[in-house]
Design a protein around this nucleic acid. Structure first.
Length: 425
RNA sequence: GCGGGAGUAGCUCAGAUGGUAGAGCACACGGUUGUGGCCCGUGCGGCCGAGGGUUCAAGUCCCUUCUCUCGCCCCA
């Protein structure tokens, strides 16, 4: 009988990866709460229609990357491929907008996309996500970007850069699309790749993003969104950049930066790293002023971002494991009762440590103690048991002393000996 | 969806021309009374990814398939 394996593109997370992920989550909560964000946990499963209407029917994510299936009553449901759609649905459904001018939420959790796995890309992956719903002011854009950068700095990332661009709004983008299309049609079509020839009809913006060298060369002189944007969009974008300048935030104005999801408008940004292979984008986001209306809510603007946790984890340094204060070696089966209670009392006093259940040879127990990395080994043999004592060995100096364990005062003294700083509770 | 690389012990990997498997590390136990790390010894441990085929004989050759991995596409 063959054993059952996990599904392709899914992973068990343990050990160092788990430690990093936990630290990532905790740091996100700490930083985002400083800005008044609250955590929102939305369902992993939503109606398929939500994603079609928000992300866009024509996007690759909806077309070929979603985990979509019918439930037992034949309704089409989808495992969330990203967080924003669910947050917006929750915002509308719970009428958060009626109770406050601005709603700020962050989410942490798994997302699902049916793609070919590779470095930094899994079918179940995890994102940290933040959404600021309500303000249309460019200062909100700047605050969100600075919050993202503070978060990334707080988890120890350094060699990263911020790319920023504007995508225009629903007023000026159609005209720009036409201008871009005209420009592309004027090019020698043979120098463009197959994808670009198709995209220039369906979604001209995406041609800007093409990685094929011959395309890049041709596109270098393409008209930019910024040059063709309406006065309002231009002013908005320049204000965002102005605030970043004043705050001393370095950025790279990238006229070719576009987004894969249809709902973005105006400010768009991405944080990239040079150290993690082909999937170099570690965070991406932007403004989505038309989104909430598009899925049936009011005409409320918003801006947000998402970070890929697996990619952040590749860039983080592992931290040292929690050091153990003691390893309790029990030398006889009769001593296990006493040993277990003693270990329990030490932990209640705030110490970290393990007990060896084996009651094996001293040599074996000491090997375990050494491997556990404990500062002290506590030896409980027949002699100690009889005299209500414990033999304490300092694992770095090798010194040994016998300490009494009979009374609560004895235990407090033992705890203090093992870890001078602790306060018993 | 499209390419490249790889699947042999828990881990990292050897196994020319086909003859039913090895090392290092790890793990367990020892190296005379109850003392770790170093050293030494012994031991445990493998349907050689799976399924077919060729052959007297397949880890090794052929086909299929699965998985992992890197990249493309796309995205965080």
């Amino acid at each position: 009988m063959s054993s059952i394996q996990k599904i392709k593109g899914f992973a068990d997370i343990y050990g160092e990866a788990d430690a990093l992920m936990t630290r990532l989550e905790n740091t996100a909560r700490d930083i985002f709460e400083r800005y008044g964000y609250r955590e929102l946990r939305t369902p992993l499963l939503e109606k398929t229609e939500l994603f079609c209407r928000s992300i866009g029917d024509e996007t690759d994510v909806v077309q070929k990357e979603m985990y979509t299936f019918d439930d037992r009553k034949g309704r089409s449901v989808t495992l969330r491929p990203e967080a924003t759609a669910g947050v917006m649905r929750a915002y509308i459904e719970n009428k958060f907008g009626a109770a406050e001018q601005v709603s700020k939420f962050f989410t942490v959790g798994p997302m699902f996309r049916y793609e070919r796995p590779q470095k930094g890309r899994m079918r179940q992956f995890h994102q940290v996500n933040a959404e600021c719903i309500g303000p249309s002011e460019p200062h909100a854009d700047a605050e969100v970007i600075m919050m993202l950068l503070l978060f990334l700095r707080s988890i120890g990332l350094s060699d990263i850069s911020l790319e920023i661009n504007t995508l225009g709004c629903r007023e000026c983008r159609p005209a720009y699309n036409e201008a871009l299309k005209t420009f592309l049609e004027g090019l020698d079509q043979d120098t463009l790749c197959e994808d670009c020839r198709r995209r220039m009809q369906t979604n001209p913006l995406r041609v800007l993003d093409c990685k094929v060298p011959s395309c890049k060369e041709q596109i270098a002189n393409a008209p930019t969104v910024l040059d063709n944007a309406c006065p309002e969009c231009k002013e908005h974008f320049h204000t965002v950049l102005g605030v970043l300048d004043k705050a001393g935030v370095p950025y790279h104005l990238n006229h070719k930066l576009v987004r894969g999801l249809d709902y973005y408008s105006r400010t768009t940004f991405e944080v990239v790293s040079n150290n993690i292979g082909a999937q170099s984008s570690i965070a991406g986001g932007g403004r989505y002023d038309g989104l909430i209306k598009q899925i049936g809510g009011g005409d409320v603007p918003g801006i947000g971002f998402a970070c890929g946790m697996e990619r952040l984890m590749q860039l983080m340094q592992a931290q040292e494991e929690k050091t153990k204060d003691f390893y309790l070696a029990v030398l006889s089966a009769e001593g296990l009762d006493t040993g277990l209670l003693l270990a329990q009392q030490l932990r209640e006093a705030g110490l970290v440590g393990e007990i060896g259940f084996g009651a094996k040879s001293v040599k074996s127990q000491m090997r375990q103690a050494g491997k556990s990395g404990a500062q002290f080994t506590l030896l409980l043999g027949e002699e100690e048991l009889a005299q209500q004592q414990i033999l304490v060995k300092n694992m770095t100096s090798g010194e040994q002393t016998a300490l009494a364990t009979g009374t609560d005062n004895d235990l407090a003294a033992l705890a203090h000996y093992l870890k001078p700083g602790i306060e018993s509770r």
